[in-house]
Amino acid sequence: MSAVTPVQVKYCGVCSFPVEFCEFGKKFKKCKAWLEEDDPELYKRLYSESAHNSSLSSEKEAKISESLAKMQLKEERKLERELQSLKSSKVLIKRIQRTKHKHVIAIAGLEVFDVDMKKMAKTFASKFATGASVTKNAEKKDEVVIQGDVGDEVETYILGLLKEKGLEDVKVEQVSEKRK
Protein backbone atom coordinates (compact mmCIF):
# COMPACT_ATOMS: atom_id res chain seq x y z
CA MET A 1 0.00 0.00 0.00
CA SER A 2 1.00 3.56 -0.45
CA ALA A 3 2.25 5.93 2.18
CA VAL A 4 -0.56 8.38 1.67
CA THR A 5 -4.14 7.25 1.68
CA PRO A 6 -6.79 9.36 0.06
CA VAL A 7 -9.02 11.44 2.27
CA GLN A 8 -12.72 10.90 1.89
CA VAL A 9 -14.46 14.21 1.66
CA LYS A 10 -18.16 14.43 2.28
CA TYR A 11 -19.84 16.32 -0.49
CA CYS A 12 -23.21 17.93 -0.21
CA GLY A 13 -25.93 16.16 -2.14
CA VAL A 14 -27.58 19.41 -3.09
CA CYS A 15 -24.85 21.82 -4.11
CA SER A 16 -21.98 19.32 -4.53
CA PHE A 17 -19.61 21.38 -2.36
CA PRO A 18 -17.83 19.89 0.60
CA VAL A 19 -20.47 20.26 3.30
CA GLU A 20 -18.65 22.96 5.22
CA PHE A 21 -18.90 25.29 2.24
CA CYS A 22 -22.65 24.97 1.90
CA GLU A 23 -23.12 28.23 3.76
CA PHE A 24 -21.47 30.00 0.85
CA GLY A 25 -23.49 28.13 -1.73
CA LYS A 26 -26.62 29.27 -3.39
CA LYS A 27 -29.03 26.80 -1.87
CA PHE A 28 -27.94 26.93 1.73
CA LYS A 29 -31.35 26.17 3.17
CA LYS A 30 -31.80 23.08 1.09
CA CYS A 31 -28.26 21.96 1.86
CA LYS A 32 -28.91 22.31 5.55
CA ALA A 33 -32.05 20.24 5.39
CA TRP A 34 -30.30 17.61 3.35
CA LEU A 35 -27.42 17.30 5.76
CA GLU A 36 -29.67 17.12 8.78
CA GLU A 37 -31.28 14.07 7.28
CA ASP A 38 -28.17 12.53 5.85
CA ASP A 39 -25.73 12.94 8.72
CA PRO A 40 -27.28 14.43 11.87
CA GLU A 41 -24.05 14.24 13.83
CA LEU A 42 -22.07 16.25 11.35
CA TYR A 43 -24.95 18.64 11.07
CA LYS A 44 -24.81 19.33 14.77
CA ARG A 45 -21.10 19.90 14.67
CA LEU A 46 -21.25 22.29 11.75
CA TYR A 47 -24.26 24.35 12.65
CA SER A 48 -24.22 24.51 16.43
CA GLU A 49 -23.94 27.92 18.01
CA SER A 50 -20.35 27.63 19.04
CA ALA A 51 -19.05 26.62 15.64
CA HIS A 52 -18.03 30.10 14.60
CA ASN A 53 -14.78 31.55 15.74
CA SER A 54 -13.72 33.96 13.11
CA SER A 55 -10.98 36.55 13.20
CA LEU A 56 -13.28 39.17 11.79
CA SER A 57 -15.21 41.61 13.88
CA SER A 58 -18.83 40.76 14.45
CA GLU A 59 -19.78 43.76 12.39
CA LYS A 60 -18.03 42.46 9.33
CA GLU A 61 -19.34 39.02 9.96
CA ALA A 62 -22.87 40.36 9.94
CA LYS A 63 -22.18 42.08 6.66
CA ILE A 64 -21.00 38.87 5.07
CA SER A 65 -23.95 36.88 6.23
CA GLU A 66 -26.28 39.59 5.08
CA SER A 67 -24.92 39.64 1.56
CA LEU A 68 -24.95 35.87 1.49
CA ALA A 69 -28.57 35.83 2.52
CA LYS A 70 -29.33 38.28 -0.23
CA MET A 71 -27.64 36.12 -2.81
CA GLN A 72 -29.44 33.04 -1.59
CA LEU A 73 -32.76 34.80 -1.75
CA LYS A 74 -32.03 35.88 -5.28
CA GLU A 75 -31.16 32.35 -6.25
CA GLU A 76 -34.34 31.04 -4.71
CA ARG A 77 -36.43 33.47 -6.68
CA LYS A 78 -34.57 32.56 -9.81
CA LEU A 79 -35.22 28.89 -9.28
CA GLU A 80 -38.87 29.59 -8.70
CA ARG A 81 -39.08 31.54 -11.91
CA GLU A 82 -37.37 28.77 -13.78
CA LEU A 83 -39.81 26.27 -12.41
CA GLN A 84 -42.66 28.48 -13.48
CA SER A 85 -41.39 28.81 -17.00
CA LEU A 86 -40.76 25.10 -17.09
CA LYS A 87 -44.33 24.46 -16.12
CA SER A 88 -45.73 26.84 -18.67
CA SER A 89 -43.69 25.37 -21.49
CA LYS A 90 -45.15 22.77 -23.73
CA VAL A 91 -44.07 19.91 -25.86
CA LEU A 92 -45.18 20.10 -29.44
CA ILE A 93 -45.58 17.01 -31.54
CA LYS A 94 -45.82 17.82 -35.21
CA ARG A 95 -47.02 15.36 -37.78
CA ILE A 96 -45.62 16.33 -41.12
CA GLN A 97 -46.81 14.71 -44.30
CA ARG A 98 -44.05 13.76 -46.64
CA THR A 99 -45.90 11.90 -49.35
CA LYS A 100 -49.46 10.71 -49.53
CA HIS A 101 -49.13 7.95 -46.99
CA LYS A 102 -45.88 8.76 -45.25
CA HIS A 103 -45.38 11.03 -42.32
CA VAL A 104 -42.59 12.14 -40.06
CA ILE A 105 -43.01 13.24 -36.48
CA ALA A 106 -41.10 16.23 -35.20
CA ILE A 107 -40.99 16.82 -31.47
CA ALA A 108 -40.10 20.29 -30.26
CA GLY A 109 -39.75 21.61 -26.74
CA LEU A 110 -38.03 18.60 -25.31
CA GLU A 111 -35.39 20.77 -23.63
CA VAL A 112 -37.49 20.78 -20.46
CA PHE A 113 -36.31 17.28 -19.73
CA ASP A 114 -32.74 18.40 -19.46
CA VAL A 115 -31.51 15.36 -21.33
CA ASP A 116 -29.25 14.87 -24.26
CA MET A 117 -31.26 15.27 -27.46
CA LYS A 118 -29.14 12.77 -29.29
CA LYS A 119 -29.79 10.14 -26.68
CA MET A 120 -33.47 10.97 -26.80
CA ALA A 121 -33.48 10.42 -30.54
CA LYS A 122 -31.69 7.15 -30.04
CA THR A 123 -34.24 5.88 -27.55
CA PHE A 124 -37.05 6.79 -29.91
CA ALA A 125 -35.29 5.08 -32.75
CA SER A 126 -34.91 1.85 -30.88
CA LYS A 127 -38.35 2.06 -29.32
CA PHE A 128 -40.22 2.45 -32.58
CA ALA A 129 -37.68 0.69 -34.77
CA THR A 130 -37.43 3.64 -37.12
CA GLY A 131 -34.91 6.27 -37.95
CA ALA A 132 -34.74 9.24 -35.64
CA SER A 133 -32.45 12.23 -35.66
CA VAL A 134 -31.87 15.63 -34.15
CA THR A 135 -32.28 18.66 -36.38
CA LYS A 136 -32.51 22.36 -35.95
CA ASN A 137 -35.88 23.87 -36.79
CA ALA A 138 -36.75 27.31 -38.05
CA GLU A 139 -36.29 28.90 -34.62
CA LYS A 140 -32.83 27.39 -34.31
CA LYS A 141 -34.02 25.03 -31.63
CA ASP A 142 -33.31 21.36 -31.57
CA GLU A 143 -36.04 18.95 -32.37
CA VAL A 144 -36.18 15.23 -32.67
CA VAL A 145 -37.44 13.99 -36.00
CA ILE A 146 -38.80 10.48 -36.15
CA GLN A 147 -39.60 8.71 -39.37
CA GLY A 148 -42.95 7.01 -39.48
CA ASP A 149 -46.39 7.86 -38.24
CA VAL A 150 -45.92 7.32 -34.53
CA GLY A 151 -47.47 10.48 -33.09
CA ASP A 152 -49.82 8.81 -30.64
CA GLU A 153 -47.21 6.44 -29.29
CA VAL A 154 -44.82 9.33 -28.81
CA GLU A 155 -47.47 11.26 -26.95
CA THR A 156 -48.16 8.48 -24.47
CA TYR A 157 -44.45 7.92 -24.00
CA ILE A 158 -43.76 11.59 -23.30
CA LEU A 159 -46.71 11.84 -20.95
CA GLY A 160 -45.28 8.90 -19.04
CA LEU A 161 -41.89 10.57 -18.90
CA LEU A 162 -43.42 13.78 -17.62
CA LYS A 163 -45.24 11.95 -14.91
CA GLU A 164 -42.03 10.35 -13.79
CA LYS A 165 -40.43 13.73 -13.44
CA GLY A 166 -43.40 15.21 -11.64
CA LEU A 167 -44.09 17.74 -14.35
CA GLU A 168 -47.69 16.92 -15.11
CA ASP A 169 -48.43 20.57 -15.79
CA VAL A 170 -46.44 20.57 -18.97
CA LYS A 171 -48.78 20.39 -21.90
CA VAL A 172 -48.32 18.03 -24.75
CA GLU A 173 -49.94 19.04 -27.99
CA GLN A 174 -50.30 17.30 -31.29
CA VAL A 175 -50.65 19.15 -34.54
CA SER A 176 -50.44 17.99 -38.10
CA GLU A 177 -48.89 19.93 -40.85
CA LYS A 178 -49.58 19.53 -44.54
CA ARG A 179 -46.81 19.64 -47.03
CA LYS A 180 -46.85 22.90 -48.91
Binding site: V4, V7, Q8, P18, L56, E61, I64
Partner: peptide, 14 residues
Protein backbone atom coordinates in the same frame (compact mmCIF):
# COMPACT_ATOMS: atom_id res chain seq x y z
CA UNK B 1 -9.45 16.93 -1.59
CA UNK B 2 -8.23 13.37 -1.71
CA UNK B 3 -4.58 14.17 -1.15
CA UNK B 4 -4.53 17.48 0.66
CA UNK B 5 -1.05 17.21 2.11
CA UNK B 6 0.81 16.91 -1.14
CA UNK B 7 0.41 20.44 -2.40
CA UNK B 8 1.80 23.75 -1.18
CA UNK B 9 -0.95 25.49 0.70
CA UNK B 10 -2.02 28.99 1.64
CA UNK B 11 -5.05 30.20 3.53
CA UNK B 12 -7.39 33.14 3.15
CA UNK B 13 -9.52 34.75 5.81
CA UNK B 14 -13.23 34.31 6.15
Amino acid sequence: HKYPTLFPRVQVDR
